[in-house]
């Protein structure tokens, strides 16, 4: 399987200025700090982690909505991170994004039909007004909405319907990859399954690859083929969905999985409770980033940074003690 997207050593740092009394202190937020990823054709790669781990920044940097600080992004073998102007515009029709908040992602003053066909207009993929309207009706049908919704405004729709509109817009240019940034976490529980099923149908019909960014592990388990777990800007474990959820090796993944409440009162499990909070991405702990909360941490973890190693076939872990 040739990789559709290949990310190597991706870093994104933000410079911030903090006021301490009258003194301005310059600091660097290490949002993404060296991430390698690969997504194949028709594959769903999940990126999970807690807030502030850098998962959304990864998605945005790949799309070049943010400029990477360091690293390379290869799109079908072509450098995406150095593209400019027309060439970048051209490649963007192949990559779409769906945002978390369906209330903020749609322009309230535009008609739904215009919203979902705007990418087509921007990329000059439609020539006439009639063609654009025809396309809008077709897209709405694809995402399970009625074609006559094209002449309505976003405020007339519920959260789930708006997310369908957002998806219609993202797939309008027939992209090969969609970045889905928490696409269902703002939706009600009975609506979430509808959207997950729609995403799965679109993948089966069109062979789209997904980069699925989420914090909800059961959803990731359900929809992703492979999963990468992020902590403080780096990937700590990566494996196929079944392997990662079946036999997690990194202590952070284990703690994360054990913290997820299971909707079955029979399985009231004993938890591995993590102490404390995620450290600030400004002052990253030396050595292993997870050592301040890790139940296995030893002297060595403060000195040596564990590298991502392939412990089993296609099962990558960044921990000194993952074998035990």
């Amino acid at each position: 399987m040739t990789a559709l997207l290949k990310v190597k050593g991706l870093k994104k740092h933000f410079r911030v200025v903090r006021q301490n009394g009258f003194r301005a202190i310059r600091e660097t937020v290490h949002a993404v700090d060296g991430v390698d990823l690969e997504i194949g054709m028709g594959e769903t790669l999940g990126v999970v982690g807690e807030s502030g781990c850098g998962k959304s920044t990864v998605g945005r940097t790949i799309l070049r909505l943010l400029e990477p600080t360091e690293g390379t992004v290869l799109w079908q073998g072509e450098r995406l991170d150095t593209l400019r102007g027309e060439a970048l515009r051209h490649i963007r029709r192949d990559i779409g994004i769906v945002f978390q908040d369906p209330f903020a992602a749609l322009d309230p003053r535009m008609l739904v039909g215009d919203i979902i066909t705007e990418p087509l207009k921007a990329h000059k993929m439609v020539t006439s007004r009639t063609e654009r309207q025809e396309k809008a009706r077709e897209l709405l049908t694809t995402v399970g909405l009625r074609p006559e919704f094209a002449s309505r405004y976003p405020h007339e729709f519920s959260g789930g319907q708006r997310q369908r509109i957002g998806i219609a817009r993202a797939i309008s240019t027939n992209p090969k990859l969609l970045v889905l940034d928490e696409p269902i976490s703002a939706l009600d529980i009975s609506i979430r399954a509808q959207i997950l099923n729609l995403l799965e149908d679109l993948q089966t019909e069109r062979g789209i690859s997904y980069l699925f960014i989420a914090h909800d592990l059961s959803v990731v388990r359900h929809i992703c083929h492979r999963v990468a777990v992020m902590y403080l800007g780096v990937i700590v474990e990566q494996a196929s969905s079944d392997t990662l959820f079946g036999s997690p090796l990194h202590p952070y993944t284990q703690a994360l999985l054990s913290a997820v409440p299971v909707a079955d009162p029979v399985i009231r499990k004993e938890r591995v409770l993590l102490e404390g909070d995620v450290p600030s991405p400004v002052h990253i702990p030396s050595g292993c980033r997870f050592r301040t909360r890790c139940p296995l941490a030893q002297e060595r973890c403060a000195q040596e940074t564990p590298l991502l190693r392939e412990l089993d076939s296609e099962h990558w872990v960044a921990c000194h003690f993952a074998e035990k």
Partner: peptide, 12 residues
């Protein structure tokens, strides 16, 4: 409608 974290297959 809940995705199950323990489930092994990708059931619809």
């Amino acid at each position: 409608s809940l995705p199950q974290i323990q489930a092994d297959s990708r059931q619809r």
